[in-house]
Design a protein around this nucleic acid. Structure first.
Lengths: 133, 133
DNA sequence: GTGTTTGCAAAGAATTTGCAACGAA
DNA sequence: TTCGTTGCAAATTCTTTGCAAACAC
């Protein structure tokens, strides 16, 4: 969080009260929340915060590389506080996204293409969902 | 296409005129079109076809495993006629999605999770976009 | 002070749904 | 005949935008 705030200032962004709350809500989060989930969490502390602000803040964080946008969920954007390279385990039933370490691997990128990141997703059914139904 | 139609009937689905046109539009397509692009293509042949029908048909194809939904594009669903395992090269500037063979690899799935597919995406900038701007 | 940020309401884009008519099997 | 399919319009859901007031720096 502290490092977030430092990075934040260093990027010339303003550290406002709403943003402070949003940063706190995101800190240490491993659940890959959607914008709506971030909003809900943030409103527990400060009910006045608007959807607009949450969207704008998330977008600013993504734009500056302090947060990443996950596309594994087809129905909404999900956000990931871990920006270092890692893989995702995605339960297509309950939507849970779990991080796993990206093993040392040799995925050769294609020629004539500048690769900025490699995303590996394991899709399937998690243990909890597999038992049910 | 013929095999599509056979699989289609075998699944108890009806082969209607609109669907025939949609199947023809998708056949051999490697461009990972969006629903809207499929609609546009289909309407060149039969202008009367509705958005509803295209959406319903794409969804039915996906549900029965004859087509797959690609999540690499954050703003809309894209569809892939190649259902065999392969990787994607995604240009985040122009949105182009290219298939590449999935090299033999040993990505170990996590324990306690039933993996149905592994999706590898190389995100970055394609040659054409890299020149510009 | 200056330029960002906020928040509301409205707009936009993608997708889904209700429902009556239609048509393949 | 029967039940899946079509198509229209309207509704939903997620996200973005216009704009005036508020605020960090």
């Amino acid at each position: 969080l502290k490092s977030f705030q430092i990075a934040w200032r260093a990027l010339g962004l303003k550290l406002t009260a709403p943003r402070r709350v949003i940063l706190e809500a995101l800190e240490g989060d491993r659940s890959h929340p959607s914008a709506e989930q971030v909003l809900a969490r943030v409103r527990k502390r400060r009910p006045g915060i608007s959807f607009t602000t949450v969207y704008a803040t998330l977008e600013a964080l993504v734009r500056h590389g302090l947060l990443s946008r996950v596309t594994a969920d087809p129905s909404r954007a999900r956000f990931d506080t871990v920006t270092a390279a890692h893989d995702h385990v995605v339960c297509d039933r309950c939507g849970t996204i779990r991080d796993v370490a990206a093993p040392r691997r040799s995925l050769r990128g294609p020629r004539g293409f500048r690769v900025s990141r490699v995303q590996v997703e394991f899709h399937g059914t998690c243990g909890a969902c597999d038992g049910r139904d």
